[in-house]
Design a protein around this nucleic acid. Structure first.
Lengths: 186, 186, 186, 186
DNA sequence: GATGAATGAGACTTCATTCAT
DNA sequence: GATGAATGAAGTCTCATTCAT
């Protein structure tokens, strides 16, 4: 994925870094814009990332990887409910902290195979955690695998609608999630 | 609100109708686009609706009015919890049925006084229903007035993320809301 | 020129009054704008004044008439130079006081016969005053009739370029004219 | 100022050339219009000149530079009055020859730093020449630095009002300036 | 590979004028 | 006569993408 030549690799990093900043600022990603801020030619940015989505997904990748990792850890947790709830908390925290994540999560289609892979992996982990919790009688039966991601996106969205700024988002998101989890509990 | 002259009124209706279609299609509202589809001059559309928001809010108005009405009815309901839950159900059903509603609900600023008025009214009703349910000991204490709208938007959003088409939205939304309501219950 | 029906006459007056205000504000004359401010339909304004120029000239007419009158008076002045200089002073004062006047004066073509008539009359008076002053040996020979209006417009323009606001215009215009007059003196 | 790449430089020149023509024709500068006439995309023109003013000032730059140069020469002239008068003559000749110059001169705000610089320089030269002439007792005391530009613009404007075509402008402008200069003489 | 100039479709908006009511 | 809704050409400007250098 990462190109070979050293300068190309440096550019790649730089572009992703600039894109990260833009996403954090809430500025809509525009490849021209990224190029200007990175002090690079548009062509260079296009070579590395043919579309906005590709760049966005790349920006989101580390977060997705972190979530995937945390899911793995959760699987070794004794308490099935705690594992499940803890995982969802991480997911929601990620989303309200990182605007890139929400967009990538809500997108129906991915452009990078890596993104698809990670999303699948996270979903699989979520499903396992849900299954375990359900088997342990901790979660109600009417919740499906396919509901996890939408619900997390919903919580994140609710948080964005509620929040005036980026500061009060974390507590709000946690509060909303707690409520939802209480509703999920068997 | 509706203009006086017959032809103008016809155009007004027509524009709103076309906009309704576009919203339902998921096409982003564009005044030029509306004009083309309506077979009218751009200027005509601009005369009636100076901004996209004005048109969008107008499109959403009937739904908002319906919700406001249903809220009123809820206030005369005996069971405080049922009244509260029923109202939220109506709100969520409205949102997943009507894309305009989500956008208008999530917007921080309105452009039409009528919209502001209706939103206030609905919020007030929601607050009253929440207070009644809380007083009756049916709802947990940590839910605030300011959380109602965001949570409803969140449910709607979750539904959109989940749904492949517009048909399975209603049951999904109801299921999600039920879960949330269970979590809100004291 | 003024219409017959009483209400029409009232409208006519009102339109001209509103236009006067707009000109004084420095707002560019727009017939739609005039109509809105006057609380009349655009059609009504168009009926009275088919073009912006027609309205502008109408607005300028009283000033033109005043100048024409003052020119007449000047002709009966004993001192030929004083008469000439005094007349030019009035003209320049008019122009820097009234934006409509500059535009009408600088225009190559008039749309109202009345305007043409008044401009001719003023020009004729100016020519006579110039001739008298020249015959009296008070003015240099190289100044032509056709130079009077342009020079007055030039003085007015210089004043506009110089001036920061409308308040310091009169003294500036007078100063500039004095200089020019000194240069015209034989 | 001129871009690096050869094709870009060619376009830049071409655009300025086309703009020059339009200005000379008396056609109001419009970026779209320029693009069409130049056979270039609108975007190209906008890239080079983000606003009409930027293009206009660029078109006027060579003239401004010429004036600045001539002012320098004037400073080394023995006769203070001749130097002053000669400079003003050049300025006025420039203005009536080049419509861009009048607009740029009369504008309160510049958009290109180069324009501001040149205008300052020319003004400074004018001020010095005026001071020298005044010290030499050749010019009346009531003329201020800040009057030079407005008066030159006024002369140019008077010339435009007078002239039927672009051909008789130069002699007219000279005649008007002579008259004014006579009035400025101590 | 890198650059960034060029492109031009297309979105947005204004306004002079007409004409049905 | 009066009204003001309708028109749509024309101007402004942006931005994703391509391609010559």
């Amino acid at each position: 994925m990462t190109p070979q030549r050293k300068d190309a690799a440096r550019n790649w990093e730089h572009i992703v870094g600039v894109a990260r900043e833009l996403v954090d600022e809430g500025t809509p990603l525009q490849l021209n814009d990224v190029a200007r801020r990175a002090g690079l030619g548009v062509g260079t940015v296009y070579r590395h990332f043919p579309t906005t989505e590709a760049l966005l997904e790349t920006v989101a990748t580390p977060c997705l990887e972190a979530l995937a990792g945390q899911g793995e850890q959760g699987l070794s947790h004794d308490d099935a409910w705690e594992a499940f709830a803890g995982f969802l908390t991480k997911v929601v925290e990620g989303q309200v902290t990182d605007a890139a994540l929400v967009k990538v999560a809500a997108a129906q289609q991915d452009v990078l195979p890596r993104t698809t892979e990670l999303k699948k992996q996270i979903l699989a982990t979520g499903s396992q955690l849900l299954a375990r919790a359900r088997d342990a009688g901790a979660v109600r039966n009417d919740l499906d695998d396919a509901d996890i991601v939408p619900l997390m996106c919903g919580i994140a969205y609710a948080t964005y609608v509620h929040s005036s700024g980026p500061d009060d988002r974390l507590p709000t998101a946690r509060r909303y999630l707690e409520t939802l989890l209480r509703g999920l509990r068997a």
